[in-house]
């Protein structure tokens, strides 16, 4: 009997979450619409697609990042991934002027940012993970230092900008779920699909990687290659979500921790969908609640960050106590 409960627990969780996610999606699409459906459906549909993409990217990237680094506290954004994105945006405005952001084709710009982020993460992680086993503390410190460095550099450049240029930049940098940049939706969707395909093909290594480097190597995983591919995919997903809504720090941590808690074991076939569904429920459900029920607007990112921050502090304290 006990055995049966253990086996079905992740399944029950998944079914409940699917239902909740569908409810939030339906509510998001239908609640409070007073216009013509042929306008409402595509209009909200675009927004919905954006939210789904962001939820998916953040959830998957955070869970896999934690798998590869073998810890439950770090997330790509704590490690300064999205700070890099901000730096790239700021540099464009700083060196080429604010017109550049509006002039160059957003697809081209997004492509450039992707290449930069992949390149950077590849160098950083190649050095960090792959020479020999390095301590987690070193990894955290280097990541945080880089994050601070990127942020301060961006801040510095932003201060030197003239107010108009700054205004343009600021618009692109604020995390906002209401004003999703819909020009990039198509590209973002395609990229997320490719990333999913790549990850799907190597899905069997995820569980082995949770055992840690020594066990993974012992079991025949090509550790170097696998980890680099996963980390590059993670940085692509971070780029996708940051490009759509701007940097969000603690959201990934929130859904990844909740997913681990709900599922109760560490199997990725349960953890990954659970985290993604949780992210969808938080974003789509939360956005519906704020837009339709409370008629607020930008507050959702603040609430989510607040909750995520709390989870982070709890994790750090619990980790220290253990």
């Amino acid at each position: 009997m006990e055995l049966k409960i253990r086996w079905s627990r992740p399944a029950i969780v998944l079914v409940i979450l699917v239902v909740l996610a569908l409810v939030s999606i339906v509510c998001f699409m239908t609640l409070g619409s007073r216009g013509n459906w042929s306008f409402v459906i595509p209009f909200r549909g675009r927004k919905l697609l954006g939210l789904l993409l962001v939820a998916y990217s953040i959830a998957i990237s955070t869970v896999l990042f934690q798998t590869v680094t073998n810890n439950r506290i770090l997330t790509p954004s704590i490690m300064g991934f999205d700070a890099l994105y901000v730096l790239v945006q700021t540099s464009i405005v700083f060196f080429f002027g604010p017109m550049m952001l509006t002039l160059i084709d957003p697809h081209f710009q997004f492509g450039m940012e992707l290449v930069l982020m992949i390149g950077f993460s590849w160098i950083l992680f190649y050095w960090l993970f792959l020479g020999e086993e390095r301590s987690l503390h070193l990894l955290v410190l280097v990541g945080i230092v880089f994050g601070i460095f990127f942020r301060s550099l961006s801040n510095f450049m932003q201060r030197l900008l003239d107010p108009n240029a700054f205004q343009v930049l600021q618009d692109t940098l604020f995390a906002s779920f209401s004003t999703i940049d819909s020009t990039l939706l198509g590209v973002a969707f395609a990229i997320a699909a490719i990333v999913t395909l790549v990850l799907w093909r190597m899905g069997h290594t995820f569980d082995v990687l949770t055992l840690g480097r020594a066990h993974a190597v012992n079991l025949g995983v090509n550790y170097k290659r696998t980890v680099v591919i996963i980390l590059v995919m993670v940085s692509v997903l971070v780029a996708v979500s940051t490009a759509l809504v701007g940097p969000i720090t603690f959201f990934g941590l929130l859904v990844a921790s909740l997913a681990h808690g709900l599922v109760g074991n560490s199997r990725h076939r349960y953890i990954l969908p659970t985290a993604a569904l949780l992210a969808v429920i938080c974003l789509v459900g939360g956005q519906t609640l704020f837009e339709r029920v409370f008629a607020f607007d930008t507050a959702l990112s603040i609430i989510i960050e607040f909750m995520g921050g709390l989870v982070f502090i709890i994790l750090v304290i619990r980790g220290a106590a253990r």
């Binding site: 569980d207 025949g220 560490s266």
Partner: peptide, 17 residues
């Protein structure tokens, strides 16, 4: 180990290769 695994899960990993 950071992963939460049962003994059976752990031993099953031996068949991964």
């Amino acid at each position: 180990m950071t992963a939460r695994l049962t003994v059976h899960d752990l031993v099953s990993f031996g068949r991964y290769p």
